[in-house]
Design a binder for these strands. Structure first.
Lengths: 144, 144
DNA sequence: AATGAAAGATTCACGTG
DNA sequence: CACGTGAATCTTTCATT
């Protein structure tokens, strides 16, 4: 994993359909040399795959960012269990800053989001929630 | 946007480097017909791009949430360009609430995060940033 | 890691229903 | 208007040095 590997990765992240020929030119290497490196990066799991970024009209779910404020006696395991129970949660982190947990959720609509928030607030370990609705996806390099 | 378009999209989401030849075989169409459809889907913004899914061992493990406050005259396209240029950005949304854009980023370390924040603040369209470092991943249903 | 040749993929102009 | 055909070009792949 050297600087050339990283250059190759950057090209493929920017555009997964970049030809090996173009990458080879950019990194000043022959095409077979680039192919061997890409093959190795794929085998080693550094490159996990290639995907198209889709903006399907109509298939827009409602994304929201929810911040949780937890009770002082809340254990990490309790919070993990809590967020794992909710299928709406895409990713959850413990965070630095004023809140304790930040999570990105995906709901069908505002009613669904509202009921999720009510459920969370009902939980004894959660003292407060703060949420903001995501209006539009500007960019996504992860499959939401 | 018919059933064939959706089949083509599915192939490209599963593997963005699938050849037009393979897709054409799978959807029982000629290669140029598939190319014309892919070109159209790209032009219409349904296919926003192609990216490699990376799992760098050790690297890019510091996640942070960055909120951007934008200048009044900032256009959506300007912001899209801005976030697409930064490989650290995993996902970016326009948001309701006090900030304009919320994004989840992935950096190597705090130095890397600091330089990213400095770059963002230098940008003329960005009036202010607010960030919080994610301490730990509690749960992730998406490939970070 | 580079070379070069063969196989495969892409792109384009042109013709069809 | 979307589809297919065929030719030219570019890309990938692999054996060899």
């Amino acid at each position: 994993m050297d600087a050339v590997d990283r250059q190759i990765i950057n090209h493929l992240v920017r555009n997964a359909r970049t030809s090996l020929t173009d990458i080879a030119r950019a990194v000043s290497l022959s095409v077979p040399a680039v192919k061997r490196r890409v093959d190795r990066l794929e085998r080693d799991g550094v490159i996990r795959g290639y995907t198209a970024l889709i903006d399907e009209p109509g298939a827009h779910k409602l994304h929201a960012l929810i911040e949780l404020f937890c009770a002082g006696h809340a254990q990490r395991e309790d919070i993990v269990r809590l967020v794992e129970e909710r299928l709406e949660v895409l990713v959850a982190f413990t965070a630095s800053g004023d809140c304790d947990v930040v999570m990105l959720v995906q709901t069908d609509d505002t009613d669904h989001l509202e009921s999720l928030l009510l459920d969370l607030r009902r939980h004894p370990l959660i003292t407060q929630t703060r949420s903001s609705v995501m209006l539009n996806t500007l960019m996504g390099r992860i499959a939401l």
